[in-house]
């Protein structure tokens, strides 16, 4: 809208009665001017809102982190527990995100193309992780996979520890970030339609070939967007992981848990530094997506 002042003019029915005697040109100019003023107003409100809620707090963290120069930051970053937390976060994301991507594409295909009983119920179920508090997700996982949980005895017999170890943290992360790929892929899939796939079929492609060569490239930007959101969510997950991990320093502490731990132990620099690293990771993810989409538009391959 910002480049189209004419679009805003519609908001104000011109009071032509009072403007009698003015030429149509000056009337139009006056209208354009008031539209521009209104637009600037809207923009100021939007920016102010963002600044108060988002920009100022993030900027403050950056400022506080580097307040005393680089060496305390360096020390905080190279602390063994910080290093461990960083790599553990990366590890969990590297497992949970691909899992959710494969599951998400399959589920989107099922919900969009399939015809079966209970489809709408399944669609609702997919959104459940959005609705339920992550803490509840964590607790319910403990009830199933914990020592006294439903599967606890069986898992213990197999020698598998889920709760208070990495598998449980991966599961918790996967659950809370489950809906993104499904929800981002479904509308693109609908827009793609089935014509191109059927064309591939009549040209001799197997279902597998049609999927890899036609369907997946057709929905790839929806999938990429879903993956980016999943990654951001998985990186930042606190509540569910906090419960299933047991928060053991240097063992089951992810970056967000580490931030909380440092903060509670009055290691403000440590907390801020880890927070900045988290923010930078998220920023890198967003940037990567931005670059990818921009390349896609340039390639006219959308």
């Amino acid at each position: 809208m910002s480049s189209n002042p004419a679009g805003v003019v519609g908001f104000s029915p011109a009071s032509s009665g009072r403007q009698l005697g003015r030429g149509p040109a000056s009337e139009a100019a006056a209208r354009a001017k008031s539209a521009r003023r209104r637009q600037l107003g809207f923009r100021a409100i939007a920016l102010g809102y963002l600044a108060l809620l988002l920009l100022a707090p993030v900027a403050m963290i950056f400022y506080r982190t580097f307040e005393h120069g680089l060496s305390p930051v360096w020390n905080a970053v190279s602390a063994p527990n910080a290093q461990h937390a960083f790599w553990l976060s990366i590890e969990i994301v590297a497992i949970a995100v691909p899992l959710n991507t494969i599951f998400g594409i399959g589920m989107a295909l099922l919900l969009e193309r399939g015809r079966f009983w209970g489809k709408s119920a399944l669609g609702l179920l997919i959104d459940l992780p959005f609705a339920i508090s992550p803490v509840v997700v964590g607790l319910s996982l403990v009830l199933v996979y914990g020592k006294t949980g439903w599967l606890g005895d069986w898992l213990a017999e197999q020698g598998i520890q889920v709760i208070f170890s990495v598998p449980g943290m991966v599961i918790a992360t996967a659950v809370v970030s489950l809906p993104f790929v499904v929800r981002e892929t479904m509308p693109v899939l609908r827009e793609l339609g089935t014509d191109a796939e059927q064309a591939a079929e009549t040209l001799g492609a197997s279902a597998w070939q049609a999927f890899w060569r036609v369907t997946l490239p057709g929905i790839r930007w929806g999938v990429v967007y879903g993956v980016v959101l999943t990654t951001a969510r998985a990186l930042g997950e606190f509540g569910a992981v906090s419960i299933v991990s047991g928060r053991i320093e240097g063992q089951t502490q992810t970056l967000p848990l580490y931030v909380q731990d440092r903060f509670e132990n009055f290691d403000i620099t440590g907390a801020y530094t880890a927070a900045v690293v988290l923010a930078l990771l998220a920023l890198a993810t967003l940037l990567a997506m931005n670059l990818l989409t921009r390349r896609a538009h340039r390639g006219t391959a959308i």
Binding site: A199, T202, L203, P217
Partner: peptide, 29 residues
């Protein structure tokens, strides 16, 4: 199935493979 029938089908809205060049579209089969 359609892929074994040896039919060429032209769809009403052409169903192009939008992410492929004209060459790759024609070469698909």
């Amino acid at each position: 199935p359609a892929r074994n029938r040896g039919v060429g089908f032209v769809f009403q809205h052409y169903a192009p493979f939008k992410h492929m060049t004209v060459h790759d579209n024609v070469a698909f089969g």
